[in-house]
């Protein structure tokens, strides 16, 4: 599966559009790490556990989007966008969406 943030895929031609695909996930870390993060919030610095949380959430959202695209028999997703929102304290929602397309390589 090829993912791009642009409208086309360089070196390839779009054969057919398969429509919008999306995937979302809401994740949280455990209480211990939340407490550690609030301590870190006092002295300043990077919150490694929350950075990990975002990375995991993003990975999962993209995986769900890809599985949806696979069902539509697409082999690429163009114009992928990631959106985030905060629902409650310490949790992160990541939403990934894009257009599933079928592409073929251009003969040169």
């Amino acid at each position: 599966m090829i993912l791009t943030t642009i409208e086309s895929i360089p070196g390839m031609r779009v054969k057919a559009h398969r429509g919008l695909v999306s995937g979302s996930t809401v994740r949280a870390k455990n209480v211990v790490l939340d407490f550690g993060a609030s301590m870190k919030n006092f002295i300043g610095g990077e919150l490694g556990s929350y950075t990990n949380l975002l990375a995991e959430a993003r990975e999962e959202a993209i995986m769900r989007m890809i599985s949806q695209a696979n069902k539509l028999k697409a082999n690429a997703i163009v114009n992928v966008r990631l959106a985030t929102s905060s629902i409650t304290a310490g949790a992160a929602e990541v939403y990934a969406y894009g257009t599933a397309v079928e592409v073929e390589a251009i003969e040169r």
Binding site: N41, G44, G45, E46, Y50, T51, L53, L54, L82
Partner: peptide
């Protein structure tokens, strides 16, 4: 992609 979460201090 890259991500980061930064906290300020008190």
């Amino acid at each position: 992609h890259g991500e980061s979460v930064i906290a300020g201090d008190y």
